[in-house]
Amino acid sequence: MINFLLRRLFLLGTVLFGLSLLAFSLGYLFPGDPLQNFSGIRQLEPQLRAELTAAYRLDHSYLSQYLAFLNRLWHGDWGLSLASQQPLLSEIRQVLPATIELTSYALLVSFLFGVPLGILAAIKPEGYLGKIINTITVAGYSLPVFWWALLLIMVFSVGLGWFPSGGRLGVLYEIPTVSGFMLVDIFLAETPYQQAIFLDALRHLALPTVVLATFPTTVMIRFVRDAMLEVWEQNYIKTAKAKGLSRLQVLYRHGLRNALLPVIRQIGLQFSALITLAMLTEVIFSWPGIGRWLLDSIYQRNFPAIQAGLMIISVLVITVNMLTEILHTFFNPLARKR
């Protein structure tokens, strides 16, 4: 296990190194002045320019520039946003929790619906139920997410008026930002209308969560179904049946435990797709998350922000990937040998 952890740590190091190298080279690859791309300061007076060139070592070799870049990253000096002239790190700190909140609810939904439906589909794969679930999943992961979101808005917000079409909270309410996670903040806030606000936040959450959860849920259903079917063929299931265990007992004691193990890893693999979909979902539902922020930065040609957004999102994805893989290995001794 220790050996495995060390190897993972080494891999994490290499990946982060490569990522920082990519982010550094983006400063030169983006159109415009590298100094402006790194610092994000719009008006560069000659004196400031000279100072920054010295501080960023732009007159030295690329290696020394890269080391200065790493040093700045480490000390939290990620440059300014070209659009707002605010420090990028504090801007990201404001938008990142919204994305994490939305994606984690979507993951939760995909887990809650995906696993039972997958098991149901695996009970009789050729039966009606199995076929219906199969059809729905194929349709589900073919849906273009932006169109799906627009359809739901058309039906549930415009047509029926059940849910709001965008935003995190109605404009009537004001909640002080403590953690950035809306539901937690509402819980912490001392207002007389706490319950009403909570319901309002949930209504705002409903549509984006459904849209975002569609893809991971369908993938989860198929994954659980395939894993279940594979486990059901194994010899230890036959042994368990031969010992006289009932179907439910076999399912619970031997089937589920083995079939659901790879699901942990699946969460990590899903996360990267989820972040991509979250970017589109956030744009449509005007959800103030990092995806919308990043896309706005692209429209504004805000290169320092694109660079920082790429790094933050990739580090997030890599960390979640790594964590789920370690968890999976922790629970599954068979995976440790490889």
Binding site: V15, L26, P31, M279, L280, I298, I306, L310, V317, I318
Partner: peptide, 18 residues
């Protein structure tokens, strides 16, 4: 492993930005 961790649409967006 590095490139696979970056979502494909994000990668495409970065390339388009360049």
């Amino acid at each position: 492993d590095l490139i696979l961790t970056i979502p494909s649409l994000l990668l495409a967006i970065i390339i388009v930005a360049v």
